[in-house]
Computed example of a mutant assay.
Amino acid sequence: MAFFHSQPQLAAIYSASPSVAVNEMASVLVGPVGLVLTIIGVVICPITSGDTALRSARITIADQLHLDHKKLISRLKVALPLFFVSFGLTFIDFSLIWRYFAWSQLIVATVVLYSATVYLMKTEKHYIISFIPAIVCTLIAFAYILQAPEGLRLPSMISNIISIIATAITTIVFLKKFKK
């Protein structure tokens, strides 16, 4: 927004294509060499990240199913279904996938915060530093899935009340289980 000076200009640029905005900013701000580096960063790096994610998924699935994945045919037995699922996901609205992904990452972060809290409690350290963020993340996770269009679509007032109650119950159960 700072580069394009206002929301309407930014909206006009992005309505054409996000690549137009990236090209314009890179050309003006970093010149031709920077433009090449920007293209590498915007195009090539996500491709290699996707490749790494699919490879990691293939290896994880093969390990969990106790499959030998040293031979090419064994790797293909796991990789091809992953490829087809990934290809199928390209036909779904990416913003929907991204929202589910963001919510799942919030859940992972919340579990990690609760795990850190348990560790800090067991080692008799100041657990509040991870416990308060865990409570906040719990509240946000409940509220989001209850009112989001891809969730239960409850009215915000109802979902917020349910979220507060569910978070309070979660907090009480957690403290009873882990606090000495």
Score class of each variant (00 low, 15 high):
Ser104Pro: 00
Leu96Glu: 13
Pro149Thr: 08
Ile129Arg: 12
Ser86Met: 09
Phe131Cys: 05
Val85Pro: 07
Lys125Phe: 02
Ala148Tyr: 00
Arg153Trp: 00
Val85Ala: 14
Leu76Gly: 04
Ser95Asp: 12
Ala134Ser: 13
Tyr119Cys: 06
Ile107Cys: 07
Tyr119Arg: 14
Ser156Glu: 03
Pro133Gly: 04
Tyr114Asp: 08
Val111Asn: 00
Val111Ala: 08
Tyr114Lys: 05
Tyr114Val: 05
His66Asp: 14
Ile92Met: 13
Ile132Arg: 07
Val78Lys: 01
Ile128Tyr: 12
Ile92Tyr: 11
Ser95Pro: 01
Tyr127Ser: 14
Pro81Gln: 10
His66Asn: 15
Arg153His: 03
Pro81Thr: 09
Ser95Lys: 12
Leu152Lys: 03
Leu89Gly: 04
Ala148Ser: 10
Phe87Met: 15
Ala109Lys: 00
Lys71Ser: 13
Leu67Asp: 06
Phe94Trp: 11
Leu113Ser: 10
Lys71Asn: 14
Tyr144Leu: 02
Lys77Asp: 04
Lys122Trp: 06
Arg75Gly: 05
Leu80Trp: 09
Ile129Ser: 14
Phe101Ala: 15
Met121Lys: 13
Ala79Asn: 01
Ser115His: 02
Val112Glu: 03
Phe87Pro: 06
Ile107His: 01
Leu154Ala: 03
Pro149Ile: 02
Val108Tyr: 04
Leu96Gln: 15
Ala116His: 12
Phe142Tyr: 11
Ile132Ala: 11
Val136Met: 05
Cys137Asp: 09
Tyr100Cys: 05
Ala109Phe: 09
Arg153Phe: 01
Pro155Phe: 01
Thr117Trp: 02
Ala143Lys: 08
Leu82Tyr: 04
Thr110His: 00
Gly88Arg: 07
Glu150Tyr: 03
Val78Tyr: 05
Thr90Tyr: 04
Phe101His: 14
Leu152Gln: 05
Ala134Pro: 08
Phe101Pro: 03
Leu154Gly: 00
Ser95Asn: 11
Gln105Lys: 09
Arg153Gln: 10
Ile132Tyr: 12
Tyr119Val: 13
Leu152Val: 06
Ile97Ala: 10
Phe84Met: 14
Leu80Cys: 00
Ala148Lys: 00
Gln105Asn: 15
Trp103Ser: 11
Ser104Ile: 06
Ile73Asp: 12
Leu152Tyr: 09
Ile107Lys: 04
Ser130Gly: 01
Pro155Ile: 00
Pro81Ser: 08
Ile145Ser: 03
Lys125Arg: 15
Leu139Gln: 08
Leu82Asp: 07
Tyr100Thr: 03
Ile73Leu: 07
Thr117His: 05
Lys122Glu: 15
Lys77Gln: 12
Ile73His: 09
Thr117Tyr: 02
Phe101Gln: 08
Ile129Trp: 12
Val111Glu: 00
Tyr100Asp: 09
Ile140Lys: 01
Ile129Pro: 05
Ala116Pro: 01
Leu113Ile: 02
Ile92His: 03
Thr117Gly: 09
Tyr127Asn: 10
Val78Asn: 06
Leu106Arg: 03
Phe87Arg: 12
Arg153Ala: 00
Tyr144Trp: 14
Val118Met: 03
Leu139Ala: 08
